[in-house]
């Protein structure tokens, strides 16, 4: 297997803060690799180091086989960067923004124009091509950002929180674009604080917290790590909650969580289900919902970090254990 991105022991401090505390990464060529973590976990710092924008204090990294420090110029020929910190010029039109990048990459004027037109068409921005980017909606802005990072046909694409603040439709459109790029052979490093996004797009995920990779694997491997399954019980009568909690705790041998009237607890043994049913029956509790399912990435995150991943700006995302 070849790796498009490799990093070993990346450390980066900002004054007293340690943004990266020894990060190792290996991203196989032609895959989507997800860097998952809450705000301030060090995701953006990692991307900035790998995209040659920031020097690491310790450790080293290669992109496309080139050292990001020594061969920064070669690395820049291979990469595209989109995200919070790499933006288009709002005062220019969509066409002008893409022309600017094309010309800077050494394309002839006519070629740059053809490339701009093609990308704008691919990203459904043809109608807005001659409007200033500041008039674009959030989703259009993000598509133009992405188009700008694709002008030079990068082999490695860094997407730093590409869907933060986007509505569900724009988010889905962007995900489709990313899938298309990977189908064309591009390697994508995606940072996100949304578990759903990492789960849907990435073939491998590194969970980052406080500047360190605290877990790594496929989404399925990570989910299996927490013990595999989640027991959910919702009593019909909220007054039965304390009894349900104690039954769940006893059967699963772990401390359950309560969200509104739903009790969840991680379990390792599928045999717990009949036991729970028996105990609930004995206690004469009527249940509105009783289920055993694979754990979501959010539970993985909770068990790894001790805190839930951020959910701000994403009220539309329903988490699996929440009552309908």
């Amino acid at each position: 297997m070849t790796y498009a991105i490799q990093a070993e022991g990346l450390v980066r401090r900002f004054g007293a803060t340690t943004a990266l505390a020894g990060v190792d990464l290996a991203v196989p060529t032609g895959t989507v690799f997800g860097l998952l973590g809450p705000n301030g976990a060090g995701k953006t710092t990692a991307v900035r180091v790998l995209a040659t924008l920031l020097a690491a204090d310790e450790g080293h990294a290669t992109v496309g086989g080139y050292d990001v420090r020594r061969d920064a110029h070669r690395v820049r020929q291979l990469i595209g960067l989109t995200g919070q910190y790499a933006s288009v010029d709002e005062t220019l039109t969509g066409t002008e923004n893409l022309l600017l990048i094309g010309r800077l990459l050494g394309m002839r004027r006519a070629d740059a124009r053809v490339r701009a037109r093609q990308l704008l068409a691919d990203f459904q921005l043809s109608d807005a091509a001659d409007r200033a980017a500041k008039t674009y909606s959030g989703g259009m802005r993000r598509r133009l950002d992405l188009a700008a990072s694709l002008v030079g046909r990068p082999q490695v694409l860094f997407l730093d929180e590409p869907t933060t603040g986007l509505d569900p439709r724009s988010r889905n459109e962007l995900w489709d674009i990313v899938r298309g790029l990977v189908a064309d052979g591009v390697t994508v490093l995606l940072t996100t604080q949304y578990l759903e996004e990492a789960d849907l797009l990435a073939s491998e995920i590194a969970v980052v917290d406080h500047g360190q990779v605290i877990a790594q694997g496929t989404p399925e491997e990570l989910k299996a790590k927490t013990g595999g399954q989640i027991l959910t019980v919702r009593p019909a009568d909220a007054g039965d909650l304390p009894t349900v909690v104690s039954i769940a705790a006893e059967v699963a041998g772990a401390t359950p969580e309560v969200a509104q009237t739903t009790v969840t607890v991680p379990v390792n043994d599928p045999g717990v289900l009949p036991a729970v049913v028996r105990r609930l029956d004995q206690a004469e509790i009527t249940v509105a919902e009783l289920a055993l399912r694979g754990s979501s990435l959010d539970e993985v995150f909770l068990s790894l970090t001790g805190h839930r991943a951020e959910q701000d700006g994403r009220s539309d995302v329903e988490l699996e254990w929440m009552p309908a």
Binding site: L53, R76, L81, S87, L104, L105
Partner: peptide, 9 residues
């Protein structure tokens, strides 16, 4: 915008 420019060759 400056970061985007700096990431170009």
């Amino acid at each position: 915008v400056f970061d985007r420019l700096r990431a170009l060759p």
